[in-house]
Write a protein that binds this DNA or RNA. Structure first.
Length: 257
DNA sequence: ATGACAGAGTAACTCTGA
């Protein structure tokens, strides 16, 4: 079973690229972030025509997450992160597919830091960590995937010294990610590629993709029940080179059935 | 140190992103 995550940066503007990628790589499940569209403007028909079921948690202009599945029943288990009824951002959706609990997240960027946006990032992270703890001990295989907006270590940025003041790499952010991992989650890409440079994002500016000036900020966290089934993982980095593409590349894991 | 690029909303430009 292949599960992918892809920050599409606009589901409607990205539709041709998204459909081509689905057609070429055929993931069983695809978690999408940054839809930038309300549910009523989501291209559900085109997704269905491509062979995928989908659940959406969209929002006008910003944020927005979705989970797609191909030839597999998709049961929504949660829409929105618990813990703050006043949080209006659409950043979390969760489903069960094939007995696996799949959380799809778009963690806040948090820049500029320090400031209210960074405070919101850390607050959201805290709520997410609490929810992750509950899922971890659910007894089911669980994957938490999406755009974490976290550069975990210096290996995960092309010039880490330039990111030390940035919300993606500040000590508070890295510590929050480490605290989450300390529950027992496995960073799947880092497990498969322990010492290699693996990027998932390349800035639109200054030919960052051509220079491979990237970041690793899209992640798969697996609990032990799923970690035992991890076969391989990768980044479809060629997609980042297509016309009218996202600044993120799709990332995927392959699991034993 | 700065700004470059892109999507969405709305209709010239702002806001956001990482």
């Amino acid at each position: 079973m292949k599960i992918a995550t892809y920050n599409v940066n606009g589901i409607n503007g990205r539709l041709p690229v998204l459909l081509r990628w689905l057609q070429e790589t055929q993931p069983d499940v695809a978690c999408l972030q940054e839809l930038k569209a309300p549910d009523e403007k989501s291209p559900l028909q085109a997704i269905n025509d491509a062979g995928y079921n989908a659940i959406w948690h969209g929002q006008k202009s910003w944020n927005g997450v979705a989970i797609l599945s191909r030839n597999l029943p998709l049961t929504e288990t949660r829409r929105g992160l618990p813990g703050d009824p006043d949080d209006t951002h659409s950043r979390y959706i969760e489903a069960e597919v094939n007995g696996i609990t799949i959380g799809c997240l778009y963690l806040p960027n948090g820049n500029p830091a320090p400031g209210p946006k960074f405070d919101y990032k850390l607050q959201w992270f805290k709520r997410f960590t609490q929810h992750a703890a509950a899922l971890y001990t659910s007894g089911k295989p669980v994957v938490l995937t999406g755009d974490y907006n976290v550069i975990p270590t210096g290996l995960d940025a092309y010039k880490p010294e330039r990111w030390v003041e940035d919300a993606l790499f500040r000590p508070e952010t890295r510590e929050a990610f480490e605290n989450l991992l300390a529950q027992g989650w496995t960073d799947a890409l880092r497990k498969i590629y322990p010492d290699e440079v693996v990027y998932t994002f390349w800035d639109y500016f200054r030919d960052a993709y051509g220079r491979n000036a990237g970041l690793r900020i899209d992640h798969f966290l697996l609990n032990p029940q799923l970690n035992d089934r991890l076969l391989t993982a990768g980044v479809d980095r060629n997609v980042r080179g297509w016309e009218k593409t996202s600044d993120h590349g799709p990332v995927w894991i392959q699991l034993a059935d």
